[in-house]
Design a protein around this nucleic acid. Structure first.
Lengths: 226, 226
DNA sequence: TGTACATCAGTGAACGCGCGTTCACTGATGTAC
DNA sequence: TGTACATCAGTGAACGCGCGTTCACTGATGTAC
């Protein structure tokens, strides 16, 4: 009985059973399974080091060397996760931006909220995206990531913020005179809040901290134009 | 000859020679040496995982088990580094605040600049302070750090910012109506910039990005009071 | 002034572990003839 | 329609490595008598 209990708890972090082999031509499915498993390990442990080839293999239910058919090495898995995470983030923001009600300030808010939501939904992944141990600089040095691609990584989000801020200015709701610079400032502020919150330390955040950052950095005029 | 060259390059990351044993009663010196060595490894590699007992011992020039006389385990070393780093940061900010010229805005700027300077001088250490793999939450869970102490970690800096902002308000230079909340927002903004810069990715920062954040978040009135 | 002895500040060898990676392989699946 | 065979999608055993930690120890240093 004790043994059985042990076994259950020991297996809890693994896939339910041995995995059925993919049919011919569908080998790429394993690639996707590897990525999800790795992302899950990351989200659960919050530790990049926990994403080992062997841990990933255990969870997927395959032998460790099977991974080499799909990724050249360990770093490639982490890089793929980060790439996917940035793509996810960009899509979430796009969706938030798509609901265009005509109220440009509401649209900017929706985008910023989506950003903060993404970070608080996947705090661990967010931390790794922005330089846990995985650092884009390192990946560039190793040649796993081109320099231009690295520079491009968070830029989609920034562009969306900048575009949205621009609309606010044009609609007369923002006093910004340098939209790009203010967009960068706003984005940095959002990142600061998102990152600090991702550390999961209790902190008595002012309830309106997000609005405070957004209003100030986007130089929004109050509703009753002052 | 080849062997000699190898030896030199192999030793390059270690202490110059074998270390002289401390005299009786001065055993605590080793503790300090261990900490500096660990901090240096961290600054050079930017990798918390590189701070291994054995790597630290190699650099100090002692045998690995000697560390146990001073630290109960590996985590204790990292925790001590982080504690020290936060104390350093607080002191830097205090020094910046001490030069009180009577111009409260200049004082606030000096404090903020000191914060950003600290981060750009020790980018790797800064990243670890704010949740590289070492996370305060983890240390609290393991009982290595009390909850109140963890909450206290960055608070000195925040208090200094809040106090300085308060002075600006009282001198009529800031329009803030909730000094604490705005101080938090300002601090979050500084952290966002400091952290993003610590990733060492090239990014076309607007030259006045810091001032932009500080002015907006501190709700500073322009020189010619608008 | 001499000496026995406790203490301090470490050392060296060894342990078991999980890791990334390599290697030669296997067996089912689809395809050419 | 049958069959030989290439290919695909993996496996299992093994390697060498550096790690954290434990253990029994050593030799210099200071101190009590």
């Amino acid at each position: 009985m004790i043994l059985a209990t042990r076994k259950v708890s020991g297996v809890s972090s693994q896939a339910p059973g041995p995995r059925a082999r993919n049919r011919r031509g569908q080998g790429d499915r394993l690639r996707a399974d590897i990525l999800t498993a790795a992302a899950n390990i990351l989200d659960e442990t919050g530790d990049e080091q926990a994403v080992t080839l062997r841990a990933v293999a255990r969870r997927v239910g395959i032998a460790a060397p099977s991974i080499y058919g799909h990724f050249p090495d360990r770093q490639a898995i982490l890089l793929a996760i980060v790439r996917e995470a940035f793509a996810d983030l960009a899509e979430q923001l796009s969706q938030a931006a798509a609901a265009d009600s005509g109220d440009q300030v509401a649209r900017l808010y929706a985008i910023c909220d989506a950003y903060l939501d993404f970070a608080s939904t996947h705090p661990q992944r967010y931390r790794v995206m922005f330089g846990g141990l995985w650092s884009a600089a390192e990946a560039v040095r190793d040649g796993a990531l081109s320099e231009t691609e690295a520079a491009e990584l968070g830029l989609d989000s920034l562009r969306l913020v900048a575009d949205s801020l621009d609309r606010c200015v044009k609609a007369g709701h923002s006093a910004s005179t340098d939209v790009l610079a203010d967009a960068v400032a706003l984005w940095v502020g959002l990142h600061g809040l998102a990152h600090q919150r991702s550390l999961a330390l209790e902190f008595p955040w002012p309830p309106d901290i997000a609005a405070r950052l957004i209003d100030a950095l986007a130089r929004l005029r109050s509703t009753v134009d002052r």
